[in-house]
Write a protein that binds this DNA or RNA. Sequence first.
DNA 1: CAGGTAGCCTGTTAGC
DNA 2: TGCTAACAGGCTACCT
Length: 281
Amino acid sequence: MPELPEVQTVLTTLQPRLLGLRIERVEVFLEKIIKSPHPREFVAWLQGRSITGLGRRGKYLLLELDGTHLLAVHLRMTGRLVYSNPDTPRDKHTHLVFYLNNGDELHYHDLRKFGTMNLMLIDEFAAFCSQKDLGPDALDPDLTKELFEKRFQGRRGQIKKLLLNQSLVTGIGNIYANEILWRARIHPERTVQSLASVDMEELYRAMRSVLQEAVAGRGTTLRDYVDGEGNPGSFQSQLAVHGREGEPCPECGKEIIRLKTGGRSAFVCADCQPQTKRSEV
DNA sequence: CAGGTAGCCTGTTAGC
DNA sequence: TGCTAACAGGCTACCT
């Protein structure tokens, strides 16, 4: 589910509510969500710790505890982290509840149970990222156009697959990959080697602008996504191509088609995103 | 090595 | 209406 804009929205909605609160108790209803440490220690380590900061790296939401520990939450497809009142009912998909010292709760809800949590020392986070081979965050101010292009140099394969590869740049998923490629006027099946420098420049610009606009729109809710307060996003109304098979391209009016590449749906305007190089058209 | 598929899960939807 | 199959935003392991 959530890609960079959605995780960012969860972060900004949770931050003012959670900051400074203490986790009194943790109840785990589905242990498989907890990847490390062992669920027993996970609970013991968390209890009594204060939330001293919130952050994000790609699609990981980060809770800093006591300034020493870090809880990395990945929502995968259908995970939700929602600030809740004690009278909020817990349904069968609520797998973890954090009881807070002000009487409120933080609920982890996940229909498909793909989400993960890793608790670690802050010092271990760099090793965690390199073990997961996470590239720079797609909205990292330090990720310049030049650095972005460099990361794709020497790589092979279809550009869409590489955009989804979190080791090159982290935070982009299927929705925004489709939107970014449309805005950059690049066909998803073009290979990186076939892209000129101007194409990579367009791609970088499209990546930044699409993601920034999606953050401003509080993310995209197609089905399951809600923010830290349980509210859906609004960017779905601004999607140009994703999920819009058969609708007209907002740019040229030609019908949007759906392709299958890399096992994922790609939505394309065949006119705006030609398979050949720009100069050859 | 690039590309494809299956698997992890459950619910919704398209098609018969 | 009821049933079945395909599909859904992520990521990994494994196959060709």
